[in-house]
């Protein structure tokens, strides 16, 4: 089985568990390192970003931090770290329900025969800064609310304003409510109109460019910060690389490092979501490896790449 097929299988299974799991008693808690949106009715787990902004993170006042609330925040942070340490960016490539939603849009576009949008490396580098800005906003926003600098209606400032998953994913739970403009007061009007504008624009861009939102995802940045403790890694053997550039061409995140790296074996960069497309496509046997604690889970091979081409040809 190619990594691509395995990925699709795992992605769909994860989607069912994270979006509908709560209806069957699955409760994974607020430490899940992917966009398992808590706004979905009956979800099976909650995205760590929401908890981090709210009741298990920066939403706690400083006075409450040194006690039960702080201990709970620390517990869920440790759960998050352990989950990231175990699976790393597989959470993005294989598990994230919003990642799968973006993949569905890409599949639809290809079916309709539209060509996709590639982002130039220099543009990618500039756009990538946005994810750190959003990360800063989701950390500082709740602190500013606690200090009385921001109005309380900015509560969960990233989810409420900038996360396109918040209106979109609840639709799969049968709820359209998050597409409403909340005119209760000026702040709610600003917050919800920003959210809907971001969602509208992002949806169009996600159709044109695979995994467009992942370029801006603050969770991707957070997971990358934990790279030193992550057991999963993408490795390259530069000596075995032909330099054909297939890895660059198949990468939907437009990562160039895997192709360009000529000395280091570590090619895991911030925008890589560990989808495994490069490992599947590389014809240089052993040049690319997806490893867990140093042991290879999958590695590139001529046979694998040919099998993939055969499979694609048949399709």
């Amino acid at each position: 089985m190619s990594l691509k097929s395995l990925r699709l299988l795992v992605q769909h299974a994860s989607f069912v568990v994270l979006i509908y799991g709560g209806r069957f008693g699955v409760r994974l808690g607020p430490g899940v390192p992917c966009f398992a949106c808590p706004y979905v009715n009956g979800c099976g787990g909650q995205c760590y970003l929401m908890g981090l902004q709210g009741y298990i993170g920066f939403g706690i006042s400083a006075a409450d931090f040194w006690g039960f609330e702080g201990a709970r925040a620390l517990f869920w942070f440790l759960v998050f770290v352990v989950l990231v340490a175990l699976l790393g960016k597989l959470w993005c490539g294989f598990v994230c329900p919003f990642g799968l939603f973006q993949d569905w849009l890409t599949m639809l576009r290809r079916r309709l025969g539209f060509s996709g949008l590639k982002i130039a490396p220099e543009t990618m580098a500039k756009l990538g800064i946005v994810k750190y800005v959003l990360l800063a906003w989701l950390v500082l926003g709740p602190i500013m609310i606690n200090l009385g600098i921001l109005h309380r209606d900015f509560y969960l400032p990233f989810c409420q304003m900038f996360c396109p998953a918040k209106p979109i994913l609840p639709v799969f739970g049968g709820e359209l409510r998050h597409f409403a403009l909340d005119v209760t007061n000026l702040v709610t009007t600003i917050v919800t109109s920003t959210s809907l504008a971001v969602t509208g624009g992002t949806l169009a861009a996600m159709f044109a460019r695979p995994r467009f939102f992942c370029v801006f995802c603050p969770l991707l940045a957070m997971i990358h910060f934990l790279k030193p403790v992550t057991l999963l890694a993408l490795k390259k053997e530069p000596a075995l690389c032909h330099g054909c550039g297939t890895c660059r061409r198949v990468c939907f995140m437009d990562v160039e490092k895997v192709w360009l790296e000529k000395a280091e074996s570590d090619v895991q960069c911030v925008d890589c979501v560990n989808c495994g497309e490069c490992v599947d496509s590389c014809s240089a046997s052993g040049a690319l490896r997806l490893t867990f604690a140093g042991k290879p889970l999958a590695k590139s091979s001529r046979a694998r790449s040919l099998g993939l081409k055969k499979h694609r040809g048949a399709a």
Binding site: F179, S193, L196, A197, G200, G201, A204
Partner: peptide, 9 residues
């Protein structure tokens, strides 16, 4: 709001 930004983009 959603549709107008979607169409605009």
């Amino acid at each position: 709001v959603f549709s107008s930004t979607f169409v605009g983009t």
